[in-house]
């Protein structure tokens, strides 16, 4: 016997999409402020600013620009994770650990989309081999990236590395293996333990494609203890 009244007992709430368009972001024309539904301030990143960050870093730090952006991304990701956890667990009235994987992923996808960072998807097919693949499409960071011959979304790689490190409780590194700025249909990011991803740096230098890098990574032997 299923008692529907009992199903509805837990506070009568049946929460839907917290990050829904028209619900999550609110703007006020008079004050010129944008806020999320909890009243936390949001910052708009105009295209010009993103372009200027790329150009400024390139000029100031040269080849280190990627590493600087990656580290900025890690800081961002760390704070983003803390806010994400707080908002999601408050709204759904459960901790992240109590959430089902699909529910958590759906939150992250919707959150990513509503912030205008493109669409996010996670491929867990390589989990057994020790890797996660994040796929991001329509990224504004790729769109504004300077033309080069290597993937350029270091900021997102940093965010993902920090986010998934905190989520899984293990230090994970992240490399980008395909980039919309190079004509790819999506930005692929591979997440894994730093010592296992290290070999891929050379393959990126050789401009190998995502599939080749992932195949080689999966074949590579994990060193002891990883």
């Amino acid at each position: 016997m299923i008692d529907v009244a009992d199903l509805l007992q837990e506070g009568q709430r049946l929460p839907g999409n917290y990050f829904a368009t028209n619900a999550y972001i609110k703007g006020d024309f008079e004050s010129g402020l944008i806020e999320n539904r909890r009243g936390d301030r949001l910052l708009a990143l105009p295209e010009t600013l993103i372009q200027a960050i790329y150009a400024g870093l390139e000029k100031e730090t040269g080849q280190a620009a990627g590493a600087v952006l990656f580290n900025c991304g890690r800081w961002w990701g760390k704070n983003f994770y803390a806010r994400f956890v707080e908002e999601v667990s408050d709204y759904y009235a459960k901790t992240l650990a109590e959430m089902e994987m699909v529910e958590l992923l759906q939150c992250l996808k919707q959150c990513w989309k509503i912030h205008g960072w493109g669409t996010f998807d996670l491929d867990v097919s390589y989990y057994q081999q020790g890797f996660l693949v994040a796929k991001i499409k329509n990224s504004p960071f790729a769109q504004e990236a300077p033309q080069g011959n290597k993937p350029a979304c270091f900021l997102e790689a940093g965010i993902l590395s920090a986010f998934f490190s905190q989520l899984t409780g293990r230090q994970l590194h992240c490399i980008q293996t395909s980039c919309e700025s190079l004509g790819a249909d999506c930005n692929n990011f591979v997440l894994g333990l730093p010592q296992r991803l290290k070999v891929a740096e050379a393959w990126l230098e050789e401009e190998q494609d995502h599939e080749t890098i992932l195949e080689r990574l999966c074949k590579s032997k994990p060193s002891a203890g990883s």
């Binding site: 839907g16 999409n17 829904a20 368009t21 028209n22 619900a23 759906q106 919707q110």
Partner: peptide, 8 residues
């Protein structure tokens, strides 16, 4: 669509 279907 936005509040529930996309979610479910």
């Amino acid at each position: 669509q936005r509040r529930i279907l996309e979610w479910l």
